[in-house]
């Protein structure tokens, strides 16, 4: 294709990372389309992706409720026992100077991941059940995409493991149900993200939105 030829904009797609133009072909389900120059994955459509996303995101939301309110860890030291839930972890900083930190921790491990799941469900569920997306679905999906780096549930789990080792010598510990709910949440969320192909979701949204 030469630059001076008239271009049909609908048949083109540009790599979001390096700006290289590609012709927008239909990608067979289960295969990957990569950028020619920088090898960024452009599209990886999966079969039944929307149904899977809805199921897995709903599962994640339910697990999140369990993870936040069920007992997370039991600590025993010098005959004293203490139960704590994720809620307590968040409230731990809520005194004095370190209050802003408690807000940040709450946001990173509970509020933002939950918001992201809700935004994804809002975008995808109507399209999976009926056909047309709900109003503001585009804004919801943009929000979900921008929240991705700030949802840190998986990092929290590794932090728990390190904390367990750190106080291993000072106290005895028992893992509660919420810990396992959180671990499952991390796995289910990661599984859901493998079904999410950003470009395909955007193309579907555009295709099904009223003009």
């Amino acid at each position: 294709m030469k630059p001076d030829e008239p271009l049909d904009l609908d048949s083109l797609i540009a790599c979001p990372v390096c700006d290289l133009l590609h012709t927008d072909a239909v990608i067979p389900v289960g295969s990957q389309a990569r950028c020619h120059r920088c090898h960024t994955v452009l599209m990886t459509p999966r079969s039944q992706a929307m149904t899977h996303i809805v199921m897995l995101a709903t599962t994640s939301l339910i697990l999140m409720v369990a993870a936040v309110f069920f007992p997370f860890l039991d600590v025993t030291a010098a005959g004293l026992e203490r139960h704590s839930s994720v809620m307590d972890t968040i409230l731990a900083f809520s005194t004095g100077l370190l209050m802003p930190l408690s807000f940040a921790v709450a946001a990173l491990i509970v509020v933002l991941p939950t918001l992201r799941l809700v935004a994804i469900l809002y975008t995808v569920t109507p399209m999976a059940i009926a056909y047309k997306p709900w109003p503001h679905a585009k804004a919801a999906f943009r929000l979900a995409e921008s929240l991705q780096p700030w949802s840190m549930a998986e990092i929290f789990i590794v932090g728990v493991a390190v904390a367990l080792v750190k106080i291993g010598g000072l106290a005895t510990l028992k893992l509660g149900p919420a810990f396992w709910a959180f671990a499952a949440l991390v796995i289910v969320t990661a599984l859901k993200d493998t079904f999410m192909c950003k470009l395909t979701v955007w193309k579907t949204l555009e295709h099904r939105s009223p003009r």
Partner: peptide, 20 residues
Amino acid sequence: MMDVFVVAILTALVQFNIVL
């Protein structure tokens, strides 16, 4: 951010008055 979470978890868990 992991280290911040470690601090959060330890602070929430280890509150045994004067003992620890």
